[in-house]
Design a binder for these strands. Structure first.
Lengths: 211, 211
DNA sequence: AAAAATGTAAAACATTCGTTTAAATCGAAC
DNA sequence: GTTCGATTTAAACGAATGTTTTACATTTTT
């Protein structure tokens, strides 16, 4: 058990427990017990509980947003090479696809998605602030591309439509794993392809509608 | 100070504090202090903290969902009287308008909206279960009307589009009052009319799109 | 008016929390 | 083999939590 093993084990355990039980409701004792490390290890390696939360977000959100940004770069470059404006559907897809791939990567990532779902509505200032800090530049990039894709819309309208779209995406992805009272005949969307096929036309139509 | 004053003062104080600080992070001492009642009053009148949460949801959510149901009834009856299927836009409007009117009713209702925004993603089983229990019948009614309005869609597809739409509505309304890093030139949607005018065309187009 | 029920008050209950301390253990460099 | 820094361990700390208890006040009933 070398040095990084402890930190990583704490991050893994905390990620899962935070996803299941929330931030305040999950104690350091539960985390360190699940991780198989000493109680004081969190304070030693991270300083305090809040810093642990930040570390969890940094570990997952930075790679995910890097992947999203690369996809958006690819969309922009492809449109530029073909001398056309990017399409709103490929823009949205560039945001969603890395998210679903990330979700399919493993149970840890899947637990992190639950965390993200709570981050924006979380009353805790640290959680909320950390999340916004990581998402804001990416959202700005997304908005910039969307304005090029839909130049006929006013900036205000473009912003709010993108806001609606991201709300639907975020809320849906976060609730995918939660048990819900599905009506008879309705099944959870199994794979990422099925979800993409359902939500992309819905959002694209909403973004493009003439009014 | 008669009998019901204490219960109501507790509900008001708890509602506001829960909205600001979450369920677990808000202590009974903070609630009773703000309400100007004794600490033991919560346990005496409600039994325990969880029952207080349920009481808060019942007080607000039942009247709100009654109003929503009445609006949906009106849409159904109007369409029936005119010998046509209800339109998806008026169905969505029948759900959103009472929500916005409720939100405009006062600061207590506005605080409650923040609570609702957290209810679905809340890890706490009591909060989540209480919310789902109140919303499920209304959602079933909404889904039934939507299937009449959009008969060309498969039940599965209708469900998921309605899910997307309600996700966008819920997430948007819950974040209306929260401070966000608005891009330059973008202003928060001031009144309910402006929000309705923005989101209804977006959702209607998404619900109706041919594929 | 007496008695019973209902609501309020202050205090203490046992637990749990995040954090700190101080000693013990480990690993590598010299 | 010793030394020194890094890490782990066990124990304790003070503070805060939900809940209960006991006594007191108030209202309602008989």
């Amino acid at each position: 058990m070398s040095q990084p093993a402890t930190k990583q084990r704490i991050l893994d355990a905390a990620e899962q427990l935070f996803a299941e039980g929330g931030f305040h409701h999950t104690s350091l004792r539960a985390i360190t017990t699940k991780a198989g490390v000493n109680l004081a290890a969190v304070n030693y390696h991270f300083g305090n509980k809040e810093a642990l939360v930040e570390a969890i977000f940094e570990r997952r959100l930075c790679p995910l947003n890097t992947a999203r940004r690369q996809q958006l770069d690819a969309v922009r470059d492809r449109a530029r090479a073909e001398g056309r404006a990017p399409g709103i559907e490929e823009i949205l897809r560039a945001f969603i696809e890395p998210t679903l791939a990330f979700r399919d990567a493993g149970p840890g990532a899947r637990a992190f998605i639950s965390l993200v779902g709570r981050a924006l509505s979380e009353p805790d200032g640290v959680v909320r602030g950390t999340f916004i800090h990581h998402m804001q530049p990416l959202f700005a990039y997304l908005l910039e591309l969307t304005r090029v894709a839909l130049p006929q819309l006013s900036p205000q309208r473009t912003f709010w439509r993108l806001f609606f779209a991201l709300s639907a995406i975020g809320h849906t992805i976060c609730l995918l794993d939660k048990p819900l009272p599905w009506p008879p005949g309705v099944t959870p969307l199994q794979d990422s392809e099925a979800l993409l096929a359902e939500i992309l036309p819905f959002l694209t139509a909403g973004m493009e509608v003439k009014e």
